[in-house]
Design a protein around this nucleic acid. Structure first.
Length: 431
RNA sequence: UCCGUCGUAGCUCAGCCGGCAGAGCAAGUGGCUGUUAACCACUGGGUCGUAGGUUCGAGUCCUACCGACGGAGCCA
């Protein structure tokens, strides 16, 4: 009985008879030969059906296979220099598990709208498989980093009673005749968890109902958010750069093949090592002015501003101490200049923009209460959050990293919609 | 929400100054023992986004609406 193998393991079975279970990715025929490109999710391998080597019925079945037909095939692994894998399979027998006809995604070019309508099938394409594999590795690396640095995973709720930041538009749902909102960040809950466990992180989906229609926005996206007690802004920036360096280097180690198939230029990723350059908001403002870009001190940076700033450095850049007015209410004011917040953003290179936002949190009860009212927020839903400042309040800091933007950056993709299996966009709820 | 571009075969597109609806791929049939988005020959395939309007005549010109894409703003 032949071994059932994953195609990615084929090198271990040179000269042996094996069984592969997969789908027909593409087929080319030449009279008495059929070349079947078979994928099983791990890789794709060419399987050769020669009329002189198989039963007539097998050769006939091979001739009639449609794209994406499900097949279980048996054959001999053999080395072949012409194969990208270095191996191909000489077919002995084929079992047609399911005959597929008129598969919509042909080996020709397609438009984005059509491919998104067929996202459930598009995921079978080589390029999408490479992206999903990089994403999986990024997520694993993020978890490994925090798990191995003494952080505790604490899951934040998805239903929340009020806005976390008071800045963005939330999805409203009916929660047993009460209003509930889909979370836009787990951060406030992580602050509570940090006071309980010291070093914590959460990883989950977050939701924004903003009508953003750009290449860097989804209405549902995944964020990983560490929060640490007794940590200040300096420590927060140290953590962010150490974390990003780790994740990027892990992806380079484990997913080089996928990055190459995506034609990603590896050089900028290889330079992504700590320390990252750190500039203040005011320095960034001056840099923009020096470039002849109109920017008013006090305004947040736009997408184009971020790109110009990032292009001045060869690795991610940390911008710290933004004006408090353009940041969330819970940011701690800079004791050296009350107009500034002890916050920081990490801007990815090559125009990928903000991948991390974070900072030191306000830990004084009275100041936090004042900021809530300054932002026009009702204090009642935040009483539990204020309790954290009543019972053993300490300096603490954290940040959130957007997974999709990180995947887009590392894969070199022009749009975040391909970084998640089933993207949720302004105009996209299907499939 | 604002600005711009585009809606023609299953898919990607061409269709000029308004005059018979086209190509490639996919599908079907046949051919080829080493193909690499294989190739060659043949066949079938259309509510030209929707609704009005102008005209002898509209895929083509005009108006409105719908949808998609790109950008801005908002945000991560």
């Amino acid at each position: 009985m032949a071994d059932k193998i994953r195609i990615s393991d084929v090198a271990k079975f040179d000269g042996q008879e094996v069984v592969v279970e997969g789908w027909l990715y593409n087929k080319r025929s030449s009279g008495k030969l059929h070349f079947l490109q078979v994928r099983d999710g791990s890789a794709t391998i060419q399987c050769v059906v020669f009329q002189g080597e198989v039963e007539p019925s097998v050769f006939e079945d091979a001739a009639e296979l449609g794209q994406e037909s499900a097949i279980r095939l048996r054959g001999i692994v053999r080395e072949d220099a012409r194969s990208p894998l270095g191996f191909e399979i000489g077919v002995i027998d084929i079992e047609v598990v399911h005959q597929s006809e008129s598969y919509p995604i042909t080996p020709k070019e397609h438009g984005t709208a059509f491919l998104m309508d067929n996202r459930h099938l598009w995921l079978r394409s080589a390029r999408q498989q490479a992206i999903m594999k990089v994403r999986s590795t990024i997520v694993k690396a993020c978890r490994d980093y925090f798990d191995s640095n003494d952080f505790l995973l604490v899951d934040a709720p998805i239903f929340t009673p009020a806005s976390c930041e008071g800045t963005s538009t939330l999805f409203e749902t009916d929660y047993f005749d009460e209003k509930a909102y889909l979370t836009q960040s787990g951060q406030l809950y992580m602050e509570a968890a940090a006071m309980a466990f010291g070093k914590v992180y959460c990883f989950g989906p977050t939701f924004r109902a903003e009508k953003s229609k750009t290449r860097r926005h989804l209405t549902e996206f995944w964020m990983i958010e560490p929060e640490v007690a007794y940590m200040d802004l300096q420590g927060d920036m140290d953590l962010a750069e150490d974390f990003i360096s780790f994740v990027v280097q892990r992806v380079l180690e484990e997913r080089r093949t996928e990055l190459e198939s995506l034609e990603r230029d590896i050089a900028p990723l290889e330079r992504t090592l700590k320390p990252f350059p750190r500039i203040s908001y005011s320095e960034a403002h001056e840099m923009l002015k020096a470039e002849g870009i109109a920017h008013t001190w006090g305004d947040d940076f736009g997408a184009e501003d971020e790109t110009v700033l990032a292009n001045k450095f060869d690795r991610p850049v940390i911008v710290h101490r933004y004006p408090a007015a353009c940041k969330a209410f819970y940011m701690k004011a800079d004791p050296e200049n009350e107009k500034l917040a002890l916050c920081m953003d990490v801007l990815a290179p090559e125009g990928y923009g903000e991948i991390i936002g974070g900072g030191q949190r306000e830990d004084d009860l009275n100041t936090l209460q004042e900021k809530l009212s300054e932002h026009g927020l009702d204090a009642a839903p935040f009483e539990w959050f204020l309790d954290l400042r009543r019972y053993g309040s300490v300096p603490h800091a954290g940040f959130g990293l957007g997974i999709e933007r990180t995947v887009a950056w590392l894969c070199g993709l022009p749009h975040v919609r391909e970084t998640i299996a089933f993207p949720r966009l302004l105009q996209r709820l299907y499939p």
